[in-house]
Amino acid sequence: PEDPYCPYPTSLLHIEELCDSIVRSHRDTSQFRLEELQALRWKLFSREELHAYQSKSVDEMWQHCAVRLTEAVQYVVEFAKRIPGFRGLGQNDQITLLKTGSMEVVLVRMSRCFNTENSTVFFDGKFGSTELFKSLGCGDLMVAVFDFAHSVCALRLTEQQMALFSSLVLINPDRPCLEDRGRVHRMRRDLEVCLSHMLRRDNQESLQHKLYQKVSVLQSLCSLHVEKLHWFSQRYPLIVHSVFPPLYKELFT
């Protein structure tokens, strides 16, 4: 039935068009193509290359990772802009949704770059284990991030399912300080209808509950990241201020 308050009808045709549009947006804003990642999955860092990373100072490695993370976030910003209805939101609400949602989507997308057979992630052009990030001094965070990637990979999401899940992670009406919560909620409801429609089509309705369970893990990973950043910026305030990417500082400090 037509919902008078919903900016657009929730007919099946509309839902399928919305699904296709989100899948296209995901594909068009993916930092790495799946085929590329598959082809490179056995390209591991050599012992010497690993040693080079582990010999970096903590501030060098933090800066390096902040740059890489910021690159990934920018792809997520482009993804958000292409989600139907997102640009119709107020500018403050667009910022609010991305302020926390961008890192969460980066973490979801990271599972595409993860090889569960040897627990390695694609970074700087090759695959490396948590050992690669030793000099960050954030062992617990990296283990938690790798564990999360494992758990998402275990769901064996298709690219289409990942696209929908990413949009749901981003369009979160529970974020604090939203000015038009109702509008975000309506957008979210259509995305939920899209996801259940897609999972029903794929005969994988049990996935919906498992996906929603991931959201709380995502939030704890993001808080742990901010906690680590706080720890680091107390030790190296000048580094964060002077050489960290400005977008990273805007989002996370």
């Binding site: 910003v77 640009r87 500018q91 403050n92 667009q94 910022i95 991305l98 302020k99 977008l247 989002l251």
Partner: peptide, 17 residues
């Protein structure tokens, strides 16, 4: 909020072409 997130705001303003 826009004041504190100038870069993000600018990225959001850029066209999606």
């Amino acid at each position: 909020l826009k004041e504190k997130h100038k870069i993000l705001h600018r990225l959001l303003q850029n066209s999606t072409s």
